[in-house]
Each structure stands twice: as structure tokens, then as C-alpha cells.
Nucleic acid binder design. Structure first.
Length: 425
RNA sequence: GUGGGCGUAGCUCAGCUGGUGGUAGCUCCGGGUUGUGGUCUCGGCGGUCGUGGGUUCGAGUCCCACCGCUCACCCCA
């Protein structure tokens, strides 16, 4: 290890067991969203830096200091994607999807990259599953996305989720409100801490996030954006809530909930699993009706969310649950005769070609060790072939559950294994 | 980027105020069962004590730096 390499800080190695869990989670996500009419979209892992800079906002941490940037050999400024939404909207515009029936609904899964301080649940390379609906401002979509997202969590066996919901109005509502909020902070300037004063200039909405109790008390009485939104946005939010209420979705209203990316408008939400501690946010999203214009497209409404696979998996592991299916093998080949190995390996391959999951000893194990291996991998059957059987061109097929053994001619072995598999399946 | 805790076999960990690394548990491999698993039992493999310096006659144990993990700030998935 001293002279060796370690995975880069903030990255994870995925061994088979967790890889299976991860894949099962994504597969579940796929089933749920494709069952609701969402199609899979994949975008490049890197994009023009400006795509993210313009959409997420220069004042956001993500753009300000967390992007992985590089200049390619052609001198282009590129960034590894810190999130999906900007890429998906870019995809929508670039591929003319505004000509498709609206809204265009897409889901994605893949790695994102942010150069942030590493801790449990926060990694520099991490995986998000993502869903976006672009081209309609129907409040039913906001509610549908939240409901589907919750269905995913529940299908994985995660209990005790908290859903927080808010509306931050339209961009046009924002400036007058921000002036109001800045004025309030200025009026209480001497009573709040540096953090609030810093946010006042940077992103006043975030001033509500202060941890300082005195400042928090002051901010508790500050004007809330929820009260400052237009009648139209308020009506939209009321409609979102009615769609959620009709489904029986539990949520709490949090008028200080502001998502960290500047492009959000109207509905915002966050789902957390509190036991995870500081990185308890396992999913979040919102509406971004102004985003398409920011990157040169026609005004196009949109709404979407993302969930962090690693965090959800940590939560599941904390509950001693794994979404990974049991590993199973149909047949193990236990061969105690060197001369027999080539022929039996060939037969094993033929069985595999017919859909039988099979493996053989590859470690030179003794008899006992090979049987133990068969047991360990959960093989339903073990093909046993030693000198005696090989001399007679047969083998013994043992049922690992019952211990029952039958002798089978090597010529009929593949057919026998195939039938056994079909019979039990 | 800033603080606190931690870093001994593949994994989980003992190791008292510095005096030669633990028959430790689990895993893995083998024997007990001349060719048959899950239990039991015996044995074996496996460590430059995170890395590099320093103090000391002597450092896993003390000091410093770095790397990594972890908790929190922050940020967000």
C-alpha cells in the first residue's frame, strides 16, 4: 500500500455486492418512471463550462468553487457535470424536442462531479438518478414527480422520510422581494451575524439558513417569499398542493426552503432521511421555468428533481436493507479429474449458452473445497466428475438442497441441466 | 477551505504509564470424512502496526508533517 495507489479522494470503489444494489436501485427507478411515460436520456459527462455557470448561477457554491474544470486540447473550457438539469434542458433545445408532444419527460442516471469537502454521504464523484418534465407548467407534473420520487424511496424500503415543500415564485416576483428582504436585513444589520450579512449580498434567500440562534430569531420575522409571490404563482402552488393532497402525500410547508441553484422558480422541494445526519438530503427538485431562456432557447417551463444514489444506499444500509437480489447460480461443476476438465468446461459453456448459470472451480480446490464453493455460491445443482465417472463418460448431478444424486451421461448433460433449470423456473 | 476524533492481518478489533506484534474473532485454504457442502473440530496462509521524519539505548505506544476515513461547519444529491 505504501508504494501503491489509492482511489482519488472523494471517490468510491464499487464491489459486486454494492454494485448489484446500485443497479437494482436504478432499475427500480427505471421501472417506476417508464411506467409513468418517462424515457431514458443520456448526456455527456462533460459540457461547456458556461452551460452550468449560466444556469446554476455564479453565486452558487456549485459553480463558484465546486466544478471540476479543464481545458481540452482544443482550448475549450469544459466542466464535468455537477448535476443533470442544465444538460437535459440543453438536450431538449438542441434536439428540437419542443416539436415533440409536450411535456417531454426524461429520466437519467449517471455520475456527477463536485469538488467539495468529503464526508459520509458527500463524495466528489457521485451518482444521481434524475427525472425532468419539460414543456408544460401544469401543476399536476410537479405533484406527479414528487409522488413518483416517493414511490421509488418506498419501493426500496425506506421509511421515515421528510418532505419539505415551498414556492419561490417567478423571477419577476424575485427582485422586488429581494429588495424587501435586503432592506429588512439592513434594518437589523447589527443584530445578525457575519454569515447573514454575507448572504445578504450574495444570495439573500440563503440568509434564512443561518445556524446562529440570534440571527435565526431575527430572520424568523423577515418577510417570506411565499407571501410575496404573484397571484398566478400562488394559484399554481395551491394547485400543486391539491394534487399532492388528493394522493395523500405528507409534506410540510417550509417558506425558507430555497434550493441552491439559481434557476429554480415556483415549486421547490426537498426530501430528507434525517438519520443520515448532515448529508440527510437524499433528493430535491423544483420548477425552473426560466432556465431554457438562460441558455438561449425559447421560454419553456420545466420541472425536475435528482436523488443521490450513495445517500439512499447509506440510508438503506442503516436500515439493514439491501435492494440487491440474492446472488444465484444454477450449477457448479466440481471436477476431480484433470483429464476431464476440458470436456466438462466445454459442456459448461454449452449449458451457459442455453441460459443455465454455471461456474466451475478455478482455484485448484480439493473435493471438500469444491463442494463448499458450490454451497457458498448458492448453486442449485452440482455436477461431480472424478476419475471413475470420466472413465465411463458420465457424471453425477447432485441436488444441493436434497442431497439426491443421479448419474447422467456426458452426452445428455447439457439437455439435463437445461431441463432441470426450466423445471424449477 | 476550517475544527474535533480515528488509522494495528482481507474484515472487526486487543495491545496497561514506550521494553521483542495477538494460540483473538470472522473470512480464505487444508486435514478430520480413501471422492461430496451448510454444523463441529484441528491446522495453515496472512502484518514494512496509513506514509515520511523526529525524540529515545529502545516507538504500535510520545512529537511533527503528509495521506486517508469519520463527525461537524459549509454545500448539496
Amino acid at each position: 500500500m505504501a508504494e501503491g495507489f489509492q482511489a482519488p479522494r472523494g471517490t468510491l470503489d464499487w464491489l459486486p455486492q454494492r454494485s448489484a444494489a446500485r443497479r437494482a436501485m436504478i432499475e427500480r427507478f427505471r421501472q417506476i418512471f417508464e411506467g409513468a411515460g418517462y424515457g431514458e436520456a443520456m448526456t455527456p459527462i462533460f459540457e461547456d463550462k458556461a452551460l452550468f455557470a449560466r444556469t446554476a448561477g455564479e453565486s452558487s457554491e456549485v459553480v463558484g468553487k465546486e466544478m471540476y474544470l479543464f481545458e481540452d486540447q482544443g482550448g475549450r473550457e469544459m466542466a464535468l457535470r455537477p448535476e443533470f438539469t442544465a444538460s437535459i434542458v440543453r438536450l431538449y433545445l438542441e434536439n428540437g424536442l419542443s416539436r415533440d408532444p409536450q411535456p417531454v419527460r426524461l429520466w437519467s442516471a449517471g455520475n456527477c462531479y463536485r469538488f467539495a469537502a468529503v464526508q459520509r454521504g458527500r463524495y466528489r464523484e457521485f451518482t444521481q438518478v434524475n427525472a425532468e418534465a419539460i414543456g408544460s407548467d401544469d401543476p399536476a407534473i410537479d405533484a406527479e414527480l414528487i409522488a413518483l420520487q416517493l414511490r421509488w424511496f418506498e419501493s426500496l424500503g425506506l421509511d421515515g422520510l421528510e418532505v419539505r415543500l415551498n414556492t419561490i415564485g417567478d423571477r419577476a416576483d424575485r427582485e422586488p422581494y429581494l429588495d424587501q428582504l435586503r432592506a429588512y436585513i439592513d434594518a437589523h444589520s447589527s443584530e445578525v451575524d457575519d454569515e447573514v450579512r454575507r448572504q445578504r449580498d450574495l444570495n439573500p434567500l440563503r440568509a434564512f439558513d443561518t445556524k446562529d440562534p440570534a440571527s435565526a430569531a431575527i430572520m424568523a420575522d423577515a418577510p417570506k417569499i411565499t407571501d410575496a409571490v404573484s397571484d398566478e404563482a400562488a394559484a399554481h402552488f395551491a394547485a400543486v398542493r391539491s394534487f399532492l393532497d388528493a394522493r395523500g402525500v405528507n409534506y410540510t410547508l417550509d417558506p425558507t426552503l430555497v434550493r441552491g441553484l439559481d434557476y429554480y422558480s415556483r415549486t421547490t422541494w426537498e426530501i430528507s432521511w434525517p438519520a443520515l445526519g448532515a448529508q440527510s438530503g437524499i433528493g430535491g427538485g423544483g420548477r425552473y421555468d426560466g432556465l431554457a431562456e438562460l441558455i438561449g432557447g425559447a421560454p419553456t417551463p420545466g420541472v425536475g428533481f435528482a436523488c443521490g444514489i450513495e445517500r439512499v444506499l447509506l440510508a438503506l444500509e442503516d436500515q439493514d436493507r439491501s435492494p440487491a437480489p440474492e446472488r444465484q447460480m444454477d450449477v457448479f461443476f466440481a471436477i476431480f479429474c484433470d483429464a476431464a476438465r476440458p470436456r466438462l468446461h466445454a459442456l459448461m459453456d454449452q449449458a451457459r449458452a442455453r441460459g443455465v448459470a454455471a461456474e466451475a472451480d478455478l482455484a485448484g480446490r480439493a473435493v471438500k473445497g469444491q463442494m463448499k464453493q458450490a454451497d457458498r455460491i448458492g448453486a442449485a445443482l452440482t455436477v461431480v466428475c472424478g476419475d471413475d465417472e470420466w472413465a465411463r463418460s458420465v457424471c453425477v448431478v447432485r441436488s444441493m438442497a436434497s442431497g439426491e444424486q443421479t448419474e447422467v451421461s456426458l452426452d445428455e448433460l447439457v439437455e439435463h441441466l437445461h431441463n432441470a433449470k426450466m423445471g424449477t423456473a
